[in-house]
């Protein structure tokens, strides 16, 4: 992946590939993968081409479903806010929700359902407590950034949360955090204080063992 810096952020295409690469790194070859809120299916297509996964996408948006079908990606058009009934227990190796959880209302239910249908979950989301977002709020405005690219009046996001908030919810739901990666806006891995320095977070989650 290319290395950007704060003065030279990644292009949209580079960011997309970067996100895909981070997720793909957690998906062993040949797995069965379910991607919730899969958009036009590009991630699944990438995972199929690079990892040989057998993937299904779930999407509610009509244009995105058309995109999936154009991308020759198996897609099921249902509203996951209503849960994943129909999907059988532990029928996938990994379930992914890539930058879509913040746009859904039924957060707890979706997290629970994800770990019902798959052994592990991969979740990525924008961190509302990222330094630049805090600065925007301090200046009196809702943040708009690479990872939060919408003005407040047009954002599809309905849940505004931070790494600290998400980890607290995982604790409450008995979800084990198996791995966490945070990146700044330039795509650089953040090691110090990710809740402050991370713009985008990736989690690998499972049921708490024992």
């Amino acid at each position: 992946m290319s290395n950007g810096n704060p003065h030279n952020p990644l292009t949209a295409k580079e960011r997309e590939r970067f996100d895909f690469a981070v997720i793909a790194n957690w998906i062993p070859p040949g797995e069965r993968v379910l991607d919730l809120g899969c958009g036009d299916g590009k991630l699944l297509r990438y995972l199929r081409e690079t990892k040989g996964v057998i993937g299904y996408g779930v999407e509610i948006d009509h244009g995105s479903v058309l995109g999936c079908i154009s991308n020759d990606v198996d897609v099921i058009q249902i509203d996951i806010e209503g849960g994943l009934s129909g999907f059988e227990d532990q029928s996938f190796n990994h379930v992914i929700i890539s930058q879509a959880l913040q746009a859904m209302h039924a957060t707890e239910r979706i997290l629970g359902e994800m770990l019902r249908v798959a052994e592990e979950a991969v979740v990525s989301f924008p961190n509302f407590a990222y330094r630049a977002n805090r600065a925007a709020i301090a200046e009196g405005h809702m943040p708009v950034s690479e990872d939060l690219p919408y003005a407040w009046y047009e954002t599809p996001n309905v849940r505004f949360f931070t790494l600290a908030d998400f980890e607290a919810l995982c604790g409450k739901l008995d979800i084990e955090i198996r791995e966490r990666l945070a990146f700044d806006e330039a795509g650089q891995l953040v090691t110090q204080d990710p809740n402050l320095n991370g713009s985008l977070a990736f989690y690998r989650l499972g049921h708490r063992r024992g």
């Binding site: 009509h62 999936c68 079908i69 990606v73 897609v75 099921i76 058009q77 249902i78 999907f87």
Partner: peptide, 21 residues
């Protein structure tokens, strides 16, 4: 239609399902 879709999914078959407005 979803009955068909999920029966196919159970059998790990390829399926694309569109619910059209």
């Amino acid at each position: 239609s979803r009955e068909i879709v999920f029966a196919l999914l159970h059998n790990r078959r390829h399926v694309a399902y569109a619910e059209i407005d």
